[in-house]
Simulated scan of single mutants.
Amino acid sequence: MDSKAVKAILFDLDNTLIETSRAGGVAIQKTSELLKTSLALDDDSVRSICDKFKQKLLHESFDPSAGRSIDQLRVSHWEESIQEVEESIQEVEESIQEVEESIQEVEESRCTPSLAAQCYYCWKNSRLEILSLSPEICHLLTDLRSRYKLLLLTNGETQTQREKVEAARCEEFFDAVVIGGEHAEQKPFVSIFTLCFNMLEVEARDCVMVGDSLDTDIQGGFNAGVRATVWISAAGGSVPEGSVKPDYTVPSVLELPHILQQLK
């Protein structure tokens, strides 16, 4: 390769190589079924519990030094979500006999930590079972690795992301795997990109960054000065006003070879 050729590709994981959003939806559905069989709640109440859990997950702040694991924290998300909906039901004054009976059944089946734990592990395990690299993506990575150095760079809490990497059997396709939660700073900070460049023994200008997040993947690649950024936008949406502009936008990572051909 000459000095201007691409030498390495950095890949995001979630919703770039694996369908995390779809897996999360399936996991929530399976957990909803568990809740229905465990508590006498209607569909709206079960949906409300799941929505509350997703909001807690979205705004989650995990501190490893606090003395509890990520699993314990997320069990508490489910416990709090169930209890919040139960309390809301109890506050509603209804004269309809069916609703009164439902509330009574909920009282008799108060949420216990064990039910919350069942919900969490149902959600977690169902999600991990679905997370996998498709045969097409496996073929793509195998082909690319014969010509480029490949590194997987994913943000997130260490245990959670390591479990995804293991479930999807990613490591065999990459020269290195970097989990943001294991370092002082995550994407889009330059420090974690510099770490990746050093691990691969390449310069920023030798690399392409591929990911689905404008705020972390594309902005991070731009901050670090990579050769090109590739935004994976399954919906084919336009870049929001004020956001960093990717060099290339494609609906699937499978389109990457066409872009690499242009960069030669």
Rank of each mutant, 00 (worst) to 15 (best):
M1D: 10
S3C: 08
F11P: 03
L13G: 00
T16F: 04
E19T: 08
T20A: 05
S21E: 13
S21T: 14
R22S: 08
A23R: 03
V26N: 08
T31E: 06
E33N: 09
L34G: 00
A40Q: 10
L41F: 08
S45A: 15
R47D: 11
I49K: 04
C50V: 15
D51L: 11
D51V: 06
L57V: 10
H59T: 13
S76C: 06
E80C: 10
I82L: 14
I82Q: 06
E87W: 07
I89F: 08
V92L: 12
S102V: 08
E108Y: 07
S109G: 06
S109H: 13
R110E: 10
R110D: 01
L128D: 10
E129V: 02
I130V: 15
C138A: 12
H139W: 02
R147E: 14
L152K: 01
Q159M: 11
Q161E: 05
E163P: 07
K164R: 15
V165W: 00
A168F: 02
C170G: 06
F173G: 03
A176L: 04
E182G: 04
A184W: 02
A184F: 05
S191Y: 04
I192L: 14
T194W: 02
F197S: 02
N198R: 14
M199R: 09
R205D: 12
L214I: 09
G221W: 00
F222H: 15
N223R: 03
G237Q: 11
Y248H: 14
T249P: 03
V250Q: 05
S252K: 10
E255L: 11
L256S: 06
